[in-house]
Each structure stands twice: as structure tokens, then as C-alpha cells.
Design a protein around this nucleic acid. Structure first.
Lengths: 414, 414
DNA sequence: TTAATTAATCAATTTTTTTGAATAAATGCA
DNA sequence: TGCATTTATTCAAAAAAATTGATTAATTAA
């Protein structure tokens, strides 16, 4: 719907712009903020006064450049707010407690084997409570919990993502209202996102994507996923599954894949299948971190897995270049950095021979910066993202009778 | 850059929202506009007063539903503004004069053969002047000229698209500052866009895409192009070539293609090549409209061309589904409707067998509504689009010293 | 004929940014 | 050392826009 704006929302928009400017380029003086945002110094004074009072920013330093009064540098106050990220898939759960600067303050991880929804919800709750207890925080300081699940996810009527339509990978997980179940138990807002998109959001907010407006994120989890950031915001697609290249059908069946699968790209990146194949060759592992040692040992099964997977992936990377034309393509997830780097290097060798000269410029292929906790860091950004991102939507007027989410919105003071 | 907003721009945003609401859903009463936009009735009264004074809207009717004062229905005034669209490629030039409602009032077309930039600029100018003369309009009523060229286009340093990097298809057209050359001669704003993206914009504004926020547009021109609308706005990509699937390399070389080409998808849809192949079989044609007769005659060369092209296209359509996840995929351009429909029907047969069950929903495949003038209609919308679309950018504060484009901006009154 | 209802507008108020002046702190130079 | 200059920040009044509450006008229902 086309929705008008009003003064209150113009102000909220400016508050978010100021906060985001400080976060991305700070610490900054008030005049510098004014210069960057095209707001007047007076307006910046007014906004920063409220942000200081709300404990979201703090005075970092006093510096002087040349003559004149010294600048008061303002920066984000890391302890101004916290957020929890929980990344769950059929093989593991990782939980992190993150501060406003994106620093991971607490971390917990456990290897599991396809939990039932009941078990999982209990586990998610206890992880959350333990992480908060470890940091000795009051519940009010935690703005919310982000939960990541493997895609593709479905969207329920109410607009809330609650279901998992991935019967093979997460059996028994159809129609599970994760959001309402968990938020009832915890009493704070819960956000759900597929782990690939979440990792992309994390990269955008706290990684190398901070200054890249449009990029694709190739995510290696238990399988293969993808997320898309367009004009600085996560782009979900119409059904919420944009970038989901894991289930893209591949033309030729490969003898090494299970025969009961319709051949699809994600099968080449399925970790349990890799573990099984390594097991056949006499190497027993159960955690992606163990792959690092195998790689430096030059394990032939692993090497072949990397090469086959990368070769299958290459045409899709080309497809991303031609269809989406992003500034960069990130590669990240639960695989060790060295293996991701090996894949990127191989892609950089393969792709030029596939491209046609007419292309002016090609996107950079980059290793993601968040490491193996990318997904949990990503989902942890969801509560902050929802409150803070200066998206056009925040310009829209709030309908008067709308059920005030303002109770939980940390910017309610503005 | 992150830019704050202020009262003036919030107002401009609301003006655009009101205008767009009337355009899409009108004629509407003021209260109805207020209801749809969440603006107050008083605000709508103020804004519509100015729009009436500016001659952009008019009173269409007085109706009453039940008791109470009758509603005054407001609608877009078609003659409130005009715009010119010029679609140029190596084989033809089509020019249209469009009113504010998207109705084509005048039309001119000529078949040409790879004009030099000099010849082309002269031709574009004379087309523009003739179209305006035919409608007997003063120059001030024409808000601008949109020019469409085959992609991929490059972007010059100043941010203005001026160059054509398509040496094969448009030889001699490197580094031609089309925008500045033509706007100097005409004295009104000139906009340049690749014809596929332009057709997508046209479909979004005046076609079936009016109520579809996110779609892909497959464009059949002299070759194959593509355009992308995301959240209601044209998405150009980082280098300006998103959706440009014409130059996507295809794996297997086809004997029927020229050997000097690197095999790419667009070669299967190249019209001059089709004409040549038809010529070999004894059928001489030179205009896409003549294909309609051939198709109803069941010409075997044409049928095979359609089938081969569609089969090659199918995996890319699947790629669009998985990567971009749009609500719909439109097919349009200079080919006759029956041929486009045949391709869409064939795709609808092929695609289900390629998809994997896990996909929840697939985008609709739709024939575009603008007919063979899609591209010229599309570029004609560019001047209006730039002035009117309620894009987030219009929320950003204008820098004070910025070279006032307001001289030419029809909304300067606000 | 009169009360009720709805559309639209007038006038006063509120919210926010802007503008112009004032204050404070440091530097550069006589 | 003293003072003009420069720069950052804030105070106070003004301007711009949407909102609120009251008013006017047109029509239907009883």
C-alpha cells in the first residue's frame, strides 16, 4: 500500500540515519554527522541529545583539528543493547550473545541430530537464558532473539514466518510456529529467518558488506543456501526464497549422489553426505572444523568434493552476475576459511573463461568476514536491524490503531 | 550516502504518494485517498488543491454512496503532461508521444540499418519535433524525452549513461553522449535506458505490472534482453546491467549459429539472423510483424526457431525463479503477440518437469500488455517516472547548493 | 420537516526543522 | 601575554508541515 508520511516519522527516519551514520563511520563529531547526512547542526544536536539519554551512543573522545573548539566525538555505546542469535539446523545449534557493535560477548554450541520441534524449542529457550546469565544481563537489555533455520521457509497467513517446508532435511518440522512458541516462553521479540539470508544480513551490518549496497551471499551450512542484499536491505523475494540456489536442479545425475534425490545443486555441498563418503574411505569426522586438518593433509576425497562442488557452482555464479549484477558475491558459512578460500580461488580461475567479453565489469568474489559463526551473528542482527535500519518503510505513517509494537521498540522514546 | 529528510521532502513524498494513488486506483474521492494513504482528510485536501492548480488532476465526477454529501472524484488529467519515447536499435526507430495516463497520442516508426551516431541524433531530434507538431503542443507541455538503446549500456563518470558497449551490434557507437547531444538540441530533459529495462518500467507503470511489485521482464528486441523491477522500482544492478541475459554464454555451440560468435543465449533470438535463415529457405521478410503470417502458415523454419530458442531459454527462467523469486515473469517486445504466446505456452509445458518439489510457489509467466511498442512506451515513462515515482530517494534532503534540476521538475511548485 | 450521515474545509495547535544569534574553547599572531 | 579568528555547539525564535476539533454543506432516512 502507498502510505504517506508525517513529522513523527520523518524524525524517526532521521534518528535512524544519524545512528547508522555513527555506526558505520563513527566516532564522529556532531558537525561531521551534519555534513554527512545533510541535516543541520542544530537537528543533529537535538537527535544526539536523545540518543545519549537513551544510552545508545556515548562520548568517545575530544579532538581538535586546527583552530576552534575541539570536536566531541560520538560513538555507538556497545553495551547500549544486546541481542541473541540462534542458528539451528539438522546437525547443530550455535547461540551467540551480541552487543550493539556486533561483538560476540558469549557463545555456546552443541552438535545435535535432527531434534523434534519440542526438543528444539526447549533447547533454544535454555540456550537463550544461559547466554543472558553468562553475561549477567537483565532481560530488558536484550532487544530480541533471532532464530536461523535452513531454507526454504514458508510464510504463514499472518505474515509471520513459522513453517519449514523442507521435509527431507528437517522431517517433522512442518507448521511449527517457532516465533510464537519461543516469544511466549521468553517474553521478548523473536525473529525467524533462513540462515543464508541471516548470514547476508550479518555481513551487511558488521562485515565487509557494510559499505557494499548490493551483494549475493553464498552460504555453506548443512547444505547450500543463498541470500541477497539489494540497496542495503535483505531482499526476500516474493515467496521469501530469493537466492535459494540449493534446490536448483542440475541436469546430469552424478553417481556419487543418492539415487532417491532429484539431483540438485545443494547435494554437492551436503555435509552429512560428505562425512559418509569420508567414512567409506576410512576417515571418521562429524564437525566441519575437522575438515581444516583434512584439507591441509591433502585428503583426496575432500579435494575431489571441493573441486566437483565448485565446478557445479560456477555456472550459477555466472547466472548471479548476469541476472542480478551485484557489486560483490560473498562466500561464507560453517566451512573452515581455508576451504572457502580454496573454492573462491578455483572460481576465480574458472569464471573468466566462461564470461563473454561484452561484460563491462564483474562482481568481486570475496570470503565472508564473520567466520563459522556467520549465521548466528546474522540472526542476532535481526532484532537490531528491525529497530534501527533506516529503511523506507520507517517513513510510512503508523496507523493509529495498529497494535503498538512500540512497547518493545527501543526507539519508542523518539 | 545516508541522507536525512526534512519537512519539505516529507511533503513532496506525500504529494507523490497521493498522485500515484490516484493514478493507480483513481478516480477517487479525497476521503478515499486519505483512507488508502493513512493521511488525514485535511492533508489530502491541501495536497489535492495544489495538484488541481497545477493541472495534474481534475474533477471527474460527483457520486454518492448512501447518505451524506456526495464524493468529488479526482482523477489524473491526461493532458496535464506529455512525454516522448524513442526506441532505437540497429534495425528500427519507433517514436511515441504519450500523455499522463500512458495513452499513445502519436506514433511514428521507420526501419533503418545501423545508423551512425550523427544520423541517429538528427533522426531522434526530427522524430521528437514531428511528434510534438502532430499533437500541436507547446514545448513546455512535454516533460522530457526517453531514449531506448539495446543493452548492455555503460555509465560515464558523471553518472549519466551515455555509452554503448556493444561493438558488434552497434558498431561505431562507443562513447556517444546521447543525452547531452539530444538535450542540447531540444532544450528539454533527455533520459537514456536500455530498451529491456524501459519496457519493464512501462509494464510497471501502465501495464499489468501496475499491481505487481517484483517481476522480471524478458524482452525480445533485435536480440534478447531483460529487465528487473524490484519493490516497484527498476533495479539496474551495480554496473547497470542486471537482467541482461542476452550475453549469457551457452555451453554447447550450435551449428546454426555464426561461428565467429562466442555462443550466447541472445544468438538464439537474433532477428537479422532469423531473417537470413528464412531467406535461405526462400522466404524474404524484414519486419517482425511479417512473422505473424508466417507463424499462422506454420512455417517450419520459424517453428524450429521458436522451439529451439524457448528450450534454450527455459533453464534461465528457472534461474530467475530460484535466484530472484519474482511474483511474475513478463514476456514482451517487438515480436508479434502470437509468437510470444507460443513461447510462453511452451515454457509452461517445459518448466514443471524441471522444477523440484520443494519449491512452494512459482512465478506466473505472463505475456506483456504493451504490444510491440513496449520499449518506446517504456522509455516515454522515464521523464514522468523520474518526476513522480514515490521512491525513497525523494525523501532525501536536497543539498542547498545542488544545481537545481527544479527548473525542469514539474513538481517544483510543491 | 428534521435528524443523521458523510465529505470537505477552516482555524488553531502541535511537532519538527531551520535560521540567526550567542557561547565556549582553542589557535595564530602581534 | 593579549586579542582577533576560527570552529563546535547550543539557545531562542521562526517557519513549515501534519493534526485536531469545529464548521459548513449536501444528501438520505424517517
Amino acid at each position: 500500500m502507498l502510505t504517506g508520511t508525517n513529522l513523527q516519522h520523518a524524525k524517526l527516519y532521521n534518528v535512524r540515519i544519524v545512528l547508522e551514520t555513527i555506526r558505520l563511520y563513527g566516532p564522529l563529531s556532531r558537525v561531521e554527522i551534519a555534513r554527512r547526512t545533510n541535516l543541520t547542526a542544530q537537528t543533529v544536536t537535538n537527535i544526539t541529545r536523545q540518543l545519549l539519554k537513551s544510552n545508545l551512543i556515548l562520548v568517545r573522545d575530544h579532538i581538535q583539528n586546527g583552530r576552534g573548539a575541539p570536536s566531541v566525538l560520538l560513538g555507538i555505546k556497545p553495551t547500549g543493547a544486546y541481542s541473541i542469535g540462534l542458528d539451528l539446523d539438522e546437525t547443530h545449534l550455535t547461540g551467540v550473545l551480541m552487543d550493539l557493535m556486533g561483538t560476540i560477548r558469549q557463545r555456546k554450541s552443541v552438535e545435535i541430530s535432527l531434534p523434534s520441534p519440542d526438543e528444539a524449542i526447549r533447547l533454544l529457550e535454555s540456550f537463550t537464558r544461559e547466554l543472558i546469565a553468562l553475561e549477567q544481563l537483565p532481560m530488558e537489555k536484550v532487544w530480541g532473539v533471532g532464530v536461523g533455520l535452513p531454507g526454504p521457509l514458508g510464510v504463514s497467513e499472518g505474515g509471520v514466518v513459522t513453517n519449514v517446508f523442507n521435509p527431507k532435511a528437517m522431517a517433522g518440522w512442518n507448521n511449527v510456529p517457532v516465533v510464537s512458541l519461543l516469544s511466549q516462553r521468553l517474553g521478548i521479540p523473536v525473529f525467524l529467518e533462513n540462515n543464508a539470508s541471516a548470514a547476508a544480513i550479518g555481513e551487511r551490518w558488521f562485515g565487509a558488506g557494510r559499505h557494499i549496497g548490493t551483494f549475493f551471499y553464498v552460504f555453506f551450512g548443512a547444505g547450500l543456501g543463498g541470500g541477497l542484499i539489494i540497496n542495503g536491505q535483505m531482499y526476500p523475494g516474493f515467496t521469501g526464497n530469493a537466492g535459494e540456489l540449493g534446490y536448483f536442479p542440475v541436469v546430469r545425475s552424478d553417481a556419487k549422489l543418492n539415487q532417491d534425490d532429484r539431483p540438485h545443486l545443494g547435494a554437492y555441498f551436503n555435509l552429512p553426505k560428505l562425512y559418509a563418503r569420508l567414512g567409506e574411505s576410512g576417515v571418521k569426522i562429524s564437525h566441519p572444523n575437522e575438515l581444516e586438518q583434512l584439507y591441509s593433509d591433502g585428503n583426496p576425497v575432500l579435494n575431489e568434493w571441493i573441486e566437483t562442488g565448485t565446478d557445479q557452482l560456477a555456472p550459477f555464479i555466472l547466472g548471479i552476475e548476469y541476472l542480478i549484477d551485484p557489486q560483490a558475491i560473498f562466500f561464507g558459512g560453517r566451512l573452515p576459511d581455508v576451504i572457502i578460500r580454496a573454492m573462491v580461488n578455483r572460481l576465480q580461475r574458472i569464471l573468466p573463461s566462461l564470461r563473454i567479453h561484452a561484460r563491462v565489469e564483474s562482481p568481486e568474489l570475496l570470503c565472508a568476514t564473520a567466520g563459522t559463526d556467520a549465521a548466528s551473528l546474522g540472526v542476532a542482527t535481526l532484532p537490531l536491524y528491525t529497530s534501527f535500519a533506516p529503511v523506507p518503510k520507517s517513513m510510512e505513517k503508523k496507523v493509529k490503531n495498529a497494535k503498538a509494537s512500540s512497547k518493545t521498540n527501543p526507539l519508542k522514546a523518539f
